[in-house]
């Protein structure tokens, strides 16, 4: 039996796709057979972040419609052996994701994979609902900013009422908060909500804090999920989040202003 994890947020541009790529890669790096699915029909991007955009032949909707088999559509990851990517369709519309169709694909993936990571589109419309419907766990990606926090709470409400687990009265979807684009300097200046503030408001267990980091941009430029940049702050923060997801108890890092070392100041760091 595999575990289905949705990466969701309500709001767009908060770091869902960045997170999906890194969490899926991190699980695979540890040897878990992992599939990551792009649910953003019409706005495919996970392929770019994972550097497989030129190898897409068939997509998620093709599989749902029986136009391709799952094996034909799954793309083997460049960096990690146990990881496969199922790209979104760039041309169809979101209604192509039927509940039956998505359920069938997830069932088939469950036979081979330990983890299925679902990258949700923004919003609370059909595509977003389909990506969270079958989830066992949810990583709610939130930026320390008013609209993102409110939208996250809205998504939490939807997980608690519209997911399959909620509908069937099963054990609720396990919720995790992932605070991303965190800037300790701005927090110290009183301009940005702190980790504690967001935890107080949402009351969801904290999976990790990803700092606002230049390395995320350079990683996406190259098509390497940032978790592979092991020297970078964001990469390390994602590795910690993966460890916590697997049950390890690690202290949160990067919550304080990073004191740059002498060499860092002299020559500039990559992080």
């Amino acid at each position: 039996m595999s575990k289905i994890i949705v990466i969701t947020s309500g709001k767009g541009g908060v770091g869902k796709t960045t997170t999906s790529a890194s969490i899926a890669s991190g699980l695979a790096k540890r040897g878990y057979k992992t599939a990551v699915i792009d649910f953003d029909v019409g706005l495919r991007n996970l392929d770019l972040i994972m550097n497989c955009e030129r190898r897409v032949v068939y997509d998620f909707v093709n599989v749902i419609n029986g136009e391709a088999t799952l094996n034909q559509a799954l793309i083997k990851d460049k960096y990690t052996d146990c990881l496969h990517i199922l790209p979104a369709s760039q041309t169809r519309d979101k209604d192509a994701l039927t509940k039956e169709g998505v359920g069938k694909v997830l069932d088939e993936l469950s036979e081979t994979f330990d983890f299925i990571v679902c990258d949700s589109p923004a919003g609370i419309e059909h595509g977003a609902l389909m990506s969270l419907y079958f989830a066992d766990e949810a990583i709610v990606v939130t930026n320390p900013e008013v609209s993102s926090v409110r939208d996250s709470d809205r998504i939490l409400g939807i997980l608690q009422s519209k997911s399959k687990r909620a509908e069937t009265g099963d054990e609720p979807v396990k919720e995790h908060l992932l605070l991303s684009r965190y800037n300790p300097i701005r927090v110290q200046n009183g301009e940005m909500l702190s980790v504690e503030d967001v935890k107080d408001i949402l009351a969801v267990p904290l999976l990790g804090v990803i700092p606002e980091s230049q390395s995320v941009l350079t990683a996406s430029n190259q098509g390497v999920p940032v978790i592979h940049q092991e020297e970078s702050d964001a990469g390390q923060a994602y590795s910690d989040a993966v460890a916590r997801l697997l049950g390890e108890d690690l202290e949160h890092r990067f919550l304080e202003i990073q004191k740059k070392g002498f060499f860092h100041r002299m020559f500039g760091g990559k992080a």
Binding site: E145, V146, V187, N189, G190, E191, L193, S194, D197, I201
Partner: peptide, 8 residues
């Protein structure tokens, strides 16, 4: 001003 407190 410490606007984060107001946001919270």
């Amino acid at each position: 001003p410490a606007t984060a407190a107001l946001a919270k």
